[in-house]
Design a protein around this nucleic acid. Structure first.
Lengths: 88, 88
DNA sequence: ATAATATTTAGATAGATATCTAAATGTTAT
DNA sequence: ATAACATTTAGATATCTATCTAAATATTAT
C-alpha cells in the first residue's frame, strides 16, 4: 500500500466511479460491472487495483464476491492533503 | 482543471515532491530542479502539469519564474475525500 | 457428473506519459 | 550586439496502463 498506490488508484475515473457506487453499500463485482460498458475483465482489473491500494475490501459469499469501501485508507489521503491546507 | 486533472497531477511522486518543496515558500524552476536528478526539461514538464491542474501558480520576475502552491485547488481534493469519510 | 453462473487470470494491443537530447525563447550583463 | 543564463518547447523513445478476447477457476443447481 502507501500513498503512491492509493493516489494512482484514484487517478482513474472508472475506479472513482466504482468507489462512488460503493458509497451506497457493498456490491458484487457483477453489480458493479452493470454500471459500465466495459467487460467484466476490465472491471475485475480495476477492482484489483483498488483492492491492492487498500481502498476496498472483498468478501467471498458463495458464488459472489462482495466489495465494500475501506474508509481507513481515505484517512491517509486526507492527512496528505491537510499537510498542505493546514486542516482548516 | 477539474478533479481528474488534479488527481492525475498528484499521482506522480516527482510532482508530489515538488509540491512538498513549495511548502516552504516560492522557488524558481532552477531551485526546484536542483533537488532532482532529472533534466530541466523534465522538471519543466512536471511544473507544467501541476500548473495546468491549478496546483501551483507561476510569476515571472525578470530572468526567473517563481512557482508557489495554490491552496485553493487542494480544497477540491479535500471535498472529494470528505464525501467518503463524512468529514470526521 | 454436467451445465450454468460469477469472477479472475493470461496474453495481446493501443494509447498515455515520464524522460531524454537538442533547439528555441526570453532576459540580463558586458 | 553578443554572450551567458533560465526556462520552455519539440521530437523521440521506453515504460506503463486501460482495455479487449479467450481461457481458467470456483461455486451452485440440475
Amino acid at each position: 500500500m502507501g500513498i503512491q498506490q492509493t493516489l494512482k488508484a484514484i487517478s482513474d475515473p472508472s475506479r472513482r466511479e466504482i468507489l462512488d457506487l460503493l458509497k451506497s453499500g457493498e456490491k458484487t463485482a457483477g453489480e458493479i460491472g452493470q454500471h459500465f460498458e466495459a467487460t467484466g475483465a476490465t472491471i475485475s482489473h480495476h477492482l484489483s487495483v483498488l483492492k491492492n491500494a487498500g481502498l476496498i475490501l472483498d468478501e467471498k459469499k458463495g458464488k459472489y464476491i462482495y466489495y465494500e469501501l475501506n474508509m481507513t485508507v481515505f484517512e491517509e489521503i486526507l492527512s496528505w492533503i491537510t499537510a498542505f491546507t493546514g486542516g482548516d
